[in-house]
Amino acid sequence: MTAPAAPIPRNDLIVCPHCDAAYTLARPGHGERAVCYRCHTVLIMPRRKAGLQIIALSVAIVILITAAAIFPFLSIAVAGAHNSVSILDAALAFSDGPLVVLSLATAALIIFVPLARVLLSLYVLVPIVMDRPPAPQAAQAFRLAEALRPWSMAEIFAIGCAVALVKVSDLADVSFGPAFWMFAILVVLVVVQDNFLCRWSVWNALSKPAKS
């Protein structure tokens, strides 16, 4: 940025981010993958119509997250006593004293980070797929979405539910609310959406503003 003349990017090369091996760029066709020869990291994996599929999945995920957070998730009954919780209740379980911090972190990891990632990727992908110039600040948005990736823990929460159920099931009767099934579908969709997305292709599209 500070240099008087803008540096010219080397678009003929691709470098593996994990082991720094450099290759001349050969774009794989749809359904093929470019893999680093040395450390076997997948570098490029374009899919036909991936953009539209990801957008469809993202819209579904937004709807499911919102619904799953509000409806009752699990309910428990022992000897007449009864309690049912939503995902938000579970996230906000750490409510006394210094544990409030943990409550906020849990709510973020389970609901808000996955939601933010999906909204950001919609913001980035919709203009690209519709062959329009990228949205303003699209690069920053995609960068943030990528940085949030390890902190999106919906699928881990789902497995946590299974463990908790095993622990409680001999203590009391547990029944699933509608949100439980929504959340189960949601987890599958989040994983699929993440695997469809070819990061290199998105960055490549973002670097060419005047496409049409």
Partner: peptide
């Protein structure tokens, strides 16, 4: 822990 302590 979160699920157990909100549910039970």
């Amino acid at each position: 822990v979160a699920i157990l302590s909100s549910l039970v």
